[in-house]
Design a protein around this nucleic acid. Sequence first.
DNA 1: CTATTATATGAAGCTTGCGTCACTTTTTAT
DNA 2: ATAAAAAGTGACGCAAGCTTCATATAATAG
Lengths: 209, 209
Amino acid sequence: MKEKTLSRREREKIRQRKEMLAAALELFSEKGFHNVTMHEIAERSEFATGTLYKFFKNKEALYKSLLYEQTDRFDKALTKALEGPGDEIEKLRAYVEAKGRIFSENISMIRLYFAETQGASFNILAGLDAKLRRKHDQILDRLARVFEAGMEKKIFREGCDPFYLAITLDSITKAFLLLWLENPDRHPYPQDPDQILDIILKGLVSHPI
Amino acid sequence: MKEKTLSRREREKIRQRKEMLAAALELFSEKGFHNVTMHEIAERSEFATGTLYKFFKNKEALYKSLLYEQTDRFDKALTKALEGPGDEIEKLRAYVEAKGRIFSENISMIRLYFAETQGASFNILAGLDAKLRRKHDQILDRLARVFEAGMEKKIFREGCDPFYLAITLDSITKAFLLLWLENPDRHPYPQDPDQILDIILKGLVSHPI
DNA sequence: CTATTATATGAAGCTTGCGTCACTTTTTAT
DNA sequence: ATAAAAAGTGACGCAAGCTTCATATAATAG
């Protein structure tokens, strides 16, 4: 798959690029696109501003690269969780668990990812939004199909739109992650996925009408 | 409550201020804080830039005023819904319904409100976030108390943290509103609040274990 | 070791946009 | 009607920050 015949120089460049993106990730996730200067990214990554421009056409391109590469990793991990073994409930558990695990390991990415995949970002860069959104929509579709399959197998009751259930689970997990981000001690992301899943799996009303 | 003895001039000033804020709201909600210039706001509101500065100390102050005044309205309306008559399920219905109605009437506010009350905004302005968040937290607390009361009355089953249920309902309604914002025809915000509420009220599993 | 090429640098140029202020217009008071 | 005060204007000063490029440094080849 990957070329193994990389020169010393080429490997070095990849490493440098990574360091630049790492510094940028930290800064962007702390302060957002507009409140970070190229000079800051240069300083934190210990390069000169000019060097940044050898790797990225401009600030926008740097931000795009960062976002594409990071979201790709997350989207792949979430998709994989939904395609794992087990029945539909197991798949949902895997999804909730994977989401918690991935983001816990990449805290600084949480805000950036959610800002761009949800509506709150104001099209910082034209077109970016749409592209990332499309990928996120694929995950929502996959999630919806899990709910659908569960209904066909009579694991889940009918009557809810599978897509809306997907939106729901997506937004709940997001809410829990943001809560955890704000106050990790008081509101940890649940170790047990069922703490989240039960909210939609078990009904809240004691005596269904 | 309100002074009725306002001079022609004073009333005129209030009207002008409103027009400035209205223009700013449109622009900010379209493009976000950083992508809107004072010149644009001046143009759209048909004043000179200098005049804006007679009303607001600077761009930041303008944005703050806008946000405070708008969120105040929404927070009051949501609180009122939760304090209305009826049992706990009725209160939740009122909340879901009010949220849909208010935002439908103020589309351009949706993004701005959610961007600031949820974590996705990157502290555009220091301190603003915290102040708005605190007010939003009060709504979450109120919502949590409704769930709690419902449990005490045995309307709801025990076993879920009321606060987390509040977070859940808040995030689901938000998700539906954003969905509707993106594609009003395909995904209208439900007329019937139960379409949203049933997701957490009725369990999804057909045969509870 | 020297020449050549590739890479890194950061000071400076240039653009953008915030906020000011000298001036004009309107309103109010006499 | 006239003067004084208040309000409105928009061109411009100035600062911030993106990007460039002449120069310095390092790597590679001969």
